[in-house]
Nucleic acid binder design. Structure first.
Length: 283
DNA sequence: AGCGTCTCCTGCTTGC
DNA sequence: TGCAAGCAGGAGACGC
């Protein structure tokens, strides 16, 4: 589910809903997600007001008045739902955590595959500093520009699609938007990263395509493949705008192109592209 | 250091 | 219809 656009939407929803509210208690239905739920999670957030919520790549950070923070990653299927029970969503099977606020409202953390995680970050913010140091610049930040990408990819031999998924190179891009951005930039996913960035125009096209696709997806509420919903349980619409993702053997959407979209596997992940529009060579 | 493979977990889809 | 295999939006550990 969640790549940068979906995480951004969830972060914005959480901000609207949670900032200035106060945690009361937590119900833990699963003691282990990707990592064990911190044993002191409940006591650390109890009676704490939420002061800010932010996003780094695909991570969400909830800041508390006592200067502790929650570092949240949604994995593949993580999501939040506000007042699910009151709204009549009675499918409790995949609710892993339930946060109860002092105003009686509730936020459920739902995660079918349990790949998401919650970490408690102390006031020194060690984990967050470490994360920032390890991750590449956010795909939507100004720091992610031609100069940066040329420098970070110039000696890379791995294919450009896999490089875009590497969060140390650029933060926030996942499997869907990597394929979609490469289609928009008319770059073959199989092209060697170093060769792509030799060409400044191509590098610029790639960066602007990534930013365009991500902004466009945020605008329409993200992609709903299986279960991405916003906090009110509403679906996104970007899946209807896919040009290549999940379109194997369908005709390319480009004007004057009648080629079929092809699916291949790169470093264990599926990649979709148009064999005619996305070329290996220089343009 | 960089790269590819495997793994965590559960559910849905596909093919026999 | 039943069942097993294959696949899924992420990232980290491991081996080379």
């Amino acid at each position: 589910m969640p790549e940068l656009p979906e995480v951004e939407i969830i972060k914005n929803n959480l901000s609207d809903y949670l900032i200035d509210k106060t945690f009361h208690s937590i119900e833990v239905f699963t003691n282990k997600l990707r990592y064990k739920i911190p044993h002191n999670l409940a006591e650390s957030i109890k009676n704490q007001r939420v002061t800010d919520i932010s996003r780094i790549a695909k991570y969400i950070i909830v800041d508390l008045e006592n200067k502790y923070s929650l570092l949240i990653h949604l994995g593949m299927t993580g999501n939040f739902l506000i007042n699910a029970q009151k709204m009549g969503h009675n499918d409790n099977k995949h609710v892993r955590l339930r946060f109860k606020m002092s105003d009686q409202s509730e936020i459920d953390y739902i995660d079918i595959r349990k790949f998401g995680f919650f970490k408690l970050v102390n006031p020194q913010k060690v984990e967050i500093k470490k994360l920032k140091a390890e991750l590449g610049p956010d795909a939507l930040s100004d720091e992610f520009d031609i100069k940066y990408l040329q420098e970070s990819l110039k000696n890379r031999v791995t294919n450009i699609k896999s490089a875009l998924l590497n969060q140390k190179i650029v933060g926030g891009i996942g499997n869907i938007y990597a394929s979609e951005a490469l289609f928009r930039a008319k770059i073959s996913p199989m092209m060697e990263s170093g060769k792509v960035v030799k060409n400044k125009i191509k590098t610029g096209d790639l960066i602007s395509s990534i930013k365009f696709i991500l902004h466009d997806a945020i605008k329409v509420g993200g992609s709903t493949i299986r279960d991405h919903k916003n906090l009110k349980g509403e679906s996104g619409y970007f899946q209807y705008k896919f040009n290549v993702y999940n379109r194997e053997n369908m005709i390319c959407n480009s004007q004057n192109c009648s080629a079929k979209i092809k699916k291949i596997v790169q470093t264990g992940r599926s990649t979709f592209y148009c064999t005619k529009c996305q070329k290996m060579g220089n343009r």
